[in-house]
Amino acid sequence: MRRMPALLSALIALMLASLTVGAAHVDLRDIFSDDRAMLVLLESRLPRTVAVALTGAALSVAGVLIQALVRNRFVGPDTVGTAEGAALGLLGVTILFPASPLWVRMIAASLAAMVTTWLFLGVIRRLPAREVMLIPIAGLVLSGVLGSVVTFIGWQTDLMQYVGTWLLSGEFSGVIAGRYELLWVAAGAAGLAWFAADRFAILGLGEQVATGLGLSTASVMRLGLAVVSVVTAMVVTTVGMIPFVGLVVPNLVSRVMGDNLRASLPVVALSGAVLVLACDLVGRLVIYPYEVPAGMILGILGAALFLWLLHRRPAHG
């Protein structure tokens, strides 16, 4: 495991950089003498940095899981309708029970995300077998259809501006202490997946092998569905959807390490954190002191990486 130290140092370096970049100048060397700097650091910079890292890690792990669930490399939590499901749930609660507390919204978003992801699983089960590329296409169209439902409701109820923050390129500029802690739930859910890593790896081997090894596929599917939905819902609620992370990071790691998830999940999580941190930093520096949302940068970088993955070699698997 020589990758972990390298990734860890990259993570630390990026986190430090993330702590120092921002509209207000903060010198990490004199935070203890400077109360204002300390305040900025604790209230804004640190929460933001942590939020970015957690989001990247959790989304990447969710990507691994959804790919194992559907046994297809070209899907991610943002391309199968999960994010739109979470937005639908949030919209529903906001409209029906405007005064409901945060945990109710959170549960509603997670449940709705579960329902739409399950819907996707139902759709692809009916697709002609062996057509590897149809699965991502079906996912993209399904999320488009669900997205238009969200947009419709958003317009009808004058909640379009919320819908925008949930589903249009997520960003971290609004993150301050007290407004991102839900992401720990996402990270916790992703961590849970690590304990079942073997089960997900076996699930990825196919129904036949999984049954042969005595794995109860239904319960592993349920666990995966739950983790993917909770992670996505938390991310959508707090910072808005970050595209492509859950799709490209698992692919890149798998190219290098393979799919022995017990070993590769930590690397996936770290890589995801590093990638999103880097994109967020770039977004903050490009037109400093203004910001470009990290999601927008990932839209470009992620799409380009996806195209590369799609064409790097002839059809396989």
């Binding site: 490399r73 890593a197 076996i202 081997l205 196919g206 092998v209 794995l215 393979g258 799919d259 698997g317």
Partner: peptide, 28 residues
């Protein structure tokens, strides 16, 4: 049981694949 269709989409090393044969006995 080894089925007739053995193609898997996962990228595993041969030793990792064989090791999964023990999974029913040690559950991870």
């Amino acid at each position: 049981i080894l089925g007739q269709q053995t193609a898997v989409a996962s990228r595993l090393r041969l030793c990792e694949l064989v090791a999964f044969g023990r999974w029913p006995h040690h559950q991870g």
